[in-house]
Design a protein around this nucleic acid. Sequence first.
DNA 1: TGAAACTTTCAATATTTATTGAAACATACT
DNA 2: AGTATGTTTCAATAAATATTGAAAGTTTCA
Lengths: 168, 168
Amino acid sequence: MELAEAKQKFIEAWGKLGSEWGINRTMAQVHALLLISPEALTTEQIMEQLQISRGNANMTLRDLINWGLIEKQHRSGERKEYFFAEKDVWTIARQVAKERKRRELEPVLKLLNQLQEVQGDEQDPEYKTFKTSVTDINKLASNVDKTLETMLKAEENWFFGSIFKLFK
Amino acid sequence: MELAEAKQKFIEAWGKLGSEWGINRTMAQVHALLLISPEALTTEQIMEQLQISRGNANMTLRDLINWGLIEKQHRSGERKEYFFAEKDVWTIARQVAKERKRRELEPVLKLLNQLQEVQGDEQDPEYKTFKTSVTDINKLASNVDKTLETMLKAEENWFFGSIFKLFK
DNA sequence: TGAAACTTTCAATATTTATTGAAACATACT
DNA sequence: AGTATGTTTCAATAAATATTGAAAGTTTCA
């Protein structure tokens, strides 16, 4: 396969995967583009390569910065802004995990804790089932939360080294 | 908090979480409803509780069955179909992991393997960066895949017991 | 067989989400 | 101060997704 074709396919696949996981397709594609680019790119270049508008490019780049996945670069003597992506995939994975944990898991955990305090009749099957489900989900979610917490601190080698000894 | 209010909040939160992770909101809500219901419910009851149409309810229930999250129940002497959800959250988590792995992770892995065979000039920075990124992502994705594979086979206690010893 | 009870399908419609593009804003330079 | 170069905003629009509801399909049983 030619490089140009491979790039195209990679960007498409990354976009599709992103959208299946609740991440804007364009955002995933811009990320993919910067990830495989050896040089930092300007907004213009990104617009051209992905055929998107200036507004879209600008918003998407800002979102990616907020996710901690890309950074702005300034070059002396130039006014244009360049963008480049963190290239270490373990760092990227941790960054995504960190953001989604904060944005999505933590609010749910907070609610689950509140819901566990629901009042009701211990004899009522509706009440019992509700309480059991909420408690069980809460336990699982707390475990996931703790596991992510540890992952965020871990070095890649340590992480997979250990995981693999365990999961042989 | 009253049971009725708590139920409502749980269903809403589950729907929101689902949609943030690329799962249809209604599907997540129907699942939540069945999860906290001690009895199997009919299509009518689900339509009423969630204020959705018959068509929507029918399609959503079929999807949930395809995900392996709920089952049909037939009662002798009745023609109506009842639906109930698997209640063990570890089983649910595994089921979801299994389906998403199959539907989303595996196709991407297949593509990444192809993309690693891209032809090009080793001196070309474009080529080198592309190849490095794809190789690294492939490694990470394979590791995730293997980890999920192991998780699918694991008992909850074993899984978290081991994970926690590791992640102390 | 016929008709009641229930389920499924899918074109039309509504809702949600993403994208555009032009105007407003900002900055640096003459 | 004026203008050239670049960035940001956001109302309007387009595209993608989800939902409805009525018609067609299926099953059961008198």
